[in-house]
Amino acid sequence: MSGYLALSLALFSIGALGVVLRRNLLVMLISIEVMLNAAILALVVFSRMYGSVDGRVMGILAIAVAAGEVAVGLALVIAFVRLRGRPDATAMDLLKW
């Protein structure tokens, strides 16, 4: 059990690092997906630990939420690229301070 949780924490950390370090907007979105996946893994692990269905049901709904967030994120990236030419966070320079 603790091994699974360690896996979840590790994935979460790696994903968070990806969001913070990478400048490619698409990669940042993918890293967020990794973080959400880590959270879903934790839900399933705890569900197993308690022998109840709750965690799994929450996980199923969370998967749907993750997918919806990606859709909006990708739409925004497309709109952004249309305006600025590349999916790059360094091209975000209109808003300062």
Binding site: L25, A42, F46, V65, M92
Partner: peptide, 23 residues
């Protein structure tokens, strides 16, 4: 886009917190 990236990251934190609260 900035709002979304930070907001989605915050959502991941929240979901993780909810998972551990459940745990």
């Amino acid at each position: 886009l900035r709002y979304l990236i930070l907001g989605a990251m915050a959502s991941a934190f929240l979901l993780m917190g909810i998972a551990f609260a459940y745990g």
